[in-house]
């Protein structure tokens, strides 16, 4: 897959964008350690898109996902969609999605020579948690008109769930890489 055609690239990007949507349709599951706060699998898709597709394609996949949400499809977790979601408190996370995927892909690319599992864990943690939280917290502080510290305190409850998703993203990337190495485009 050294020189994939435009069509193949489009097919892959659309697939990951659809995967993020499909993960959002999964029922929410509550994890006990987070006090039963329902978490969704959607940001797992963001991490996977970056880790698997690499920085540029990963970010484009997320932009495509956001565009289709804005067009009015209820694809965000909980069945939300339409332009209204960009006016709500979680706008920072939405804007952060492409940046998070870009970061995941970039780190994955930089760690090209290290084993897949730790590299994917590290990329997913930095992109899918650190970068995404920076955008998300900034968006909350702005939209809710609160201080950054207040907004950040909200995120504490989501942290265990997101760490679980980082673990999953790494394991999935590793297993897919074993079964279909060329699918890890960030390493091609």
């Amino acid at each position: 897959m050294s020189n994939p055609s435009t069509e193949r690239t489009i097919a892959q990007i659309a697939l990951y964008a659809a995967l993020i949507a499909a993960l959002g349709l999964l029922p929410k599951f509550a994890i006990p350690i987070a006090g039963g706060i329902p978490i969704t699998a959607q940001s797992l898709g963001v991490m996977l898109a970056g880790v698997m597709l690499g920085p540029v394609r990963g970010a484009i996949a997320l932009l495509l996902f956001l565009l289709v949400v804005a067009l009015g499809l209820p694809l965000l977790a909980g069945g939300r969609g339409g332009i209204g979601v960009f006016m709500g408190p979680s706008v920072g996370f939405l804007v952060g999605f492409p940046f998070a995927a870009f970061t995941c892909g970039l780190i994955m690319k930089l760690l090209k020579n290290s084993p897949v599992l730790p590299a994917a864990w590290f990329s997913a943690a930095v992109g899918g948690i650190a970068i995404l939280y920076v955008f998300g917290i900034a968006g909350m502080a702005w939209k809710m008109d609160t201080t950054v510290m207040q907004a950040a305190s909200v995120m504490v409850v989501f942290l265990p769930g997101d760490m679980l998703k980082v673990l999953l993203a790494g394991l999935i990337a590793q297993t897919v890489w074993r079964g279909m190495p060329q699918a890890l485009i960030s390493r091609a």
Binding site: I10, A11, I13, A14, L15, A17, A18, L19, A21, A22, L25, L64, F65, L67, V68, L71, L73, L75
Partner: peptide, 13 residues
């Protein structure tokens, strides 16, 4: 891309 993605969702499910 938009139409491909929308079509993929039910296929993935």
């Amino acid at each position: 891309s938009v139409s491909l993605m929308i079509r993929y969702i039910p296929v993935l499910v």
